[in-house]
Structures are given as C-alpha cells and as structure tokens.
C-alpha cells in the first residue's frame, strides 16, 4: 500500500473548491428569474429551478464529503505512520480545510 498524504490534502482542497462552486451554481439556479414566462409556464419553471437547486446542492455536498473523507484518510495515515512523522508539520497544514 502506498499513501501520498500531501497529494490527498491538496486534492481535498480542490474538492472543497468544487463544493463552493456548486453552492454558487445552486444559488444561481434558485435565483433564476421566472417572471418573464407566461402564466402557463412560470410554475413549471419555478418547480424546475427548485428541484435543480436541490440537485446542485446535493452534488456539492458530495464534493464536500469527498474532501472530508480524503482529509480523514490522510490524517489517519500521518498519525499512525512513524515514517512520515518528521514531515507531518508540512502535511498537517495542507490537511486543514482552507475554506
């Protein structure tokens, strides 16, 4: 088994960014203006936006879960493997969630 905790940490941060991007996308869908549609269509447009806000939010949550999972795996490895102890101060920084 080979473990690359630094790469896992940086990839986790990329998943975090994806999470943030999808949060933004979910907000954008939710705020998409339905006022221009005719009365016969605006309800369907609202329902669609509402459903897709949830879909985008859930996809973002999945991304966040991937990030957290990677961080947990890498942190476990750093804690249990004495071989990387000397580098742990470098790795631990990247294993912190930046935003």
């Amino acid at each position: 088994m080979d473990v690359v905790p630094f790469a896992m940490g940086t990839t986790a941060r990329s998943w975090d960014e994806q999470h943030l991007d999808l949060q933004a996308a979910a907000g954008q869908i939710a705020e998409a203006p339905t006022g221009g549609f005719t009365a016969g269509v605006s309800g369907a447009a609202s329902r669609f936006a509402s459903a897709w806000q949830r879909h985008a939010t859930e996809l973002g949550d999945t991304a966040e879960a991937r990030a957290d999972g990677l961080r947990t795996s890498a942190a476990d490895y750093v804690r249990t493997d004495q071989g990387v102890a000397s580098d742990s101060f470098l790795i631990l920084d990247v294993l912190r969630e930046a935003r």
Binding site: D21, L22, A25, I29, P33, G36, F37, A45, A56, A63
Partner: peptide, 23 residues
C-alpha cells in the same frame, strides 16, 4: 411575457451547467 427575462433564466441555467461540467 418578457422574452428578455426568459433569456436571463436560461443564462443562469447555462452558467450553472458550466460549473457542474467542471466537476
């Protein structure tokens, strides 16, 4: 109806699709 407003709705969906595509 307001076609310009409808295009705004579509533009928001298209921009969101680009985000999802990035993932």
């Amino acid at each position: 109806c307001d076609p310009g407003g409808i295009r705004g709705y579509g533009a928001d969906l298209l921009a969101a699709s680009a985000q999802v595509d990035d993932l």
